[in-house]
Structure formats: structure tokens, C-alpha cells
């Protein structure tokens, strides 16, 4: 039954992807890519990847759609259609089909889906599953691997996110003088939902609950699907929703830019700082066992702190990026 469901969803995924590429209306393409992400999240869930599904739903369907839409507001909503341009282009098509054909040919060598004897299940992963109860003592193995066993890797990823945030800021301008506008002018320019009573009332009611859920995902991530990456994206989505409803200026008043800049830097700093403290206490870098008397309690403390750092940086970067685009639109 699950197989039939999976095949159905995967086929839908392909249909949506074709529709995205065929559509010349970019607005429709962005909306379809939101659906694509949501379908992808359901597929991940069917494949037992609850943490990844949560991340994909929050990031892909939520934040990415908003970012693409705010970029569309600054560029053009339609692809320029040329004479004969809507037709398929043969050379790229041949290249793409050759690549796809080769990959499909290669898959016949792959072990079937779900085969417990597949090579990927033979090394490293069984060790993680075996030793997590003893060494880390938390139920969610994904969080244990992410934060502790492969903490160095995650630190790198956090710094990639951090660097991308800095990159967007340096391309779209860190500061600029806002022209003094009357509130009517701001209302007209912002294109916010401030005059739409029903979405505004309902949306404002949602924001605290979304933030609460973000906190649950953040601090319950060691026991259920969740963690800093997901919580950061969900928290950012809550503030972005508020900014969309009330206008970007009020969103910036709620979480001011200086605070965002501190968040972006301090989260990454907290992650790295925990590693350095571990070294000062006589362990190796990011070896949390030395943080407390009992090694597993030290691991708990370390995981809590680094997940917090990840959450702060991710939400800070996503909000910074959103404001950088929205501010351009309102100028």
C-alpha cells in the first residue's frame, strides 16, 4: 500500500516539475515549485525521513516561495516569449536526455529500495545506531549524528548559511537612507495586506502559535523530529508572515536590523564557542562529553547549545535575506 502511495506521489512530482518548466508565467512557476517542495516533503516522510520532511516543508514550501516571490516583484513576472522561443530547444534536450538515460541505465545496478543488505547500510550508520543510546543517550539519532558525531560538518554548514547571508547583504546593500514617506505613501508602496481585514486578523492570530511551534521544534528536537535548522526556518516564517501582513517597515520594527545582524553572527559564534570551550576543558573540538561530570549529560548540554546556535543563525539569515529583498521593493 505504501508502495502504491509512493509511486503515485513520485509521479505527481514529475508532472509538477514538467509543469514548472513549461510555464512561461513565472508567478505560476514559483507557486508550482511550492507544491513541488510539499510533495517532496511527503515523499521524504514516506521514506522514513521525518526530520528532512519537516525541513523541506518549512524551507522549501514556506521560505523559498516567499523569497522567489519577492525577487519576482523586483524583476519581471513573465518570461519573455520570443518568436519560436516557446518550442523545445533540441541541443539542451539531447544533453538532458542523454544524462537522464545514462542515470537510469546506472540504476539497474542499484540495490532495490529498502534492501537492508545495501552497501550504504553496512558501514558507519549501524555504528551510529548502536552507540547513540550509550554515548549520547537521546532518542533522535538524526540529531545525535547532526550535532555530535558529525558536529564539525554541521559547523561548516552553519558557516555556509552565515556566508550566504553576508553575501546577500553585500550585493543588495547593507544600509541605505530611507526617504521619509507619509504612512499613506508607505501603504500604497508596500503592497502589504494591511487593508485586507480577514487575512490580517487570521494571520496575526497565527503568528504566536507558529513561534510557539518553532520553540517546540527547537527544544524538543532531541526527542522527536526537529532541531535548530527546522526551528530557525519556522521562526523566520512566522516573522515573514507578520511582515507580509503588516508591511515590511513594521516587520523591521518588530525584529530590528541590528538585532538580526547580532543574531546572524552570534549563532555561528555560539556553535564555534562551544567547540572551543570543549577544548579548554581538556576535550577535543566539539567533544561535548567534557562539559559535565557525566559524559552523556555533557552531550545533552552541548547539543542544546549548538542547536540553539544553529536556530539563531538560520532564522537570522533567512530574515535578513527577506528584508534585503523587501526593502528593495519598497524603495
Amino acid at each position: 500500500m505504501t508502495l502504491v502511495f509512493g509511486v503515485f506521489l513520485l509521479t505527481l512530482l514529475v508532472i509538477v516539475a514538467v509543469a514548472i518548466v513549461r510555464s512561461t508565467n513565472l508567478f505560476a512557476a514559483v507557486m508550482l515549485s511550492g507544491i513541488f517542495s510539499l510533495l517532496m516533503a511527503v515523499n521524504f516522510f514516506l521514506l522514513d525521513a521525518a526530520d528532512v520532511a519537516l525541513t523541506e516543508a518549512a524551507v522549501g514550501a514556506g521560505v523559498a516561495t516567499v523569497l522567489f516571490l519577492s525577487a519576482l516583484a523586483l524583476t519581471a513576472e513573465h518570461e519573455q516569449v520570443r518568436p519560436g522561443g516557446a518550442a523545445l530547444q533540441w541541443l539542451p534536450l539531447v544533453v538532458a536526455f542523454a544524462t537522464g538515460g545514462l542515470l537510469i541505465y546506472a540504476t539497474f545496478q542499484n540495490p532495490v529500495i529498502g534492501d537492508p543488505n545495501a552497501p550504504v547500510h553496512q558501514h558507519v550508520a549501524p555504528w551510529y545506531l548502536e552507540n547513540t543510546p550509550e554515548l549520547i543517550d537521546i532518542p533522535n539519532v538524526v540529531t545525535a549524528v547532526l550535532g555530535s558525531f558529525r558536529g564539525f560538518d554541521t559547523l561548516g554548514e552553519v558557516f555556509v548559511v552565515f556566508t550566504a547571508g553576508i553575501g546577500v547583504l553585500s550585493i543588495l546593500g547593507l544600509r541605505h537612507t530611507l526617504v521619509e514617506m507619509t504612512s499613506a505613501e508607505i501603504d500604497a508602496r508596500q503592497r502589504s495586506l494591511r487593508h485586507h481585514l480577514i487575512p490580517r486578523v487570521v494571520g496575526r492570530g497565527m503568528v504566536p502559535f507558529i513561534l510557539l511551534f518553532a520553540l517546540y521544534v527547537q527544544f524538543h528536537g532531541e526527542y522527536s523530529p526537529g532541531g535548530g535548522f527546522q526551528a530557525g526556518a519556522i521562526a523566520a516564517a512566522a516573522i515573514i508572515l507578520y511582515s507580509l501582513l503588516e508591511g515590511d517597515d513594521r516587520g523591521r520594527a518588530l525584529v530590528p536590523e541590528w538585532l538580526l545582524q547580532i543574531m546572524v553572527a552570534s549563532g555561528a559564534l555560539l556553535f564555534g564557542g562551544v567547540g572551543v570551550v570543549c577544548m579548554l576543558l581538556g576535550g577535543s573540538f566539539l567533544d561535548y562529553s567534557v562539559l559535565a561530570e557525566v559524559p552523556s549529560e555533557g552531550q545533552h548540554l552541548g547539543l542544546l547549545l549548538i542547536e540553539l546556535g544553529v536556530g539563531i543563525t538560520v532564522s537570522g539569515v533567512l530574515l535578513t535575506v527577506f528584508h534585503a529583498f523587501a526593502r528593495r521593493a519598497s524603495r
Partner: peptide
Amino acid sequence: ILTAIVVGIA
């Protein structure tokens, strides 16, 4: 993949 998704959006 969990980290790759967030890096991807960034």
C-alpha cells in the same frame, strides 16, 4: 540532506 536543504535555500 537536512543541512543541504538549508544551505540550498541560502
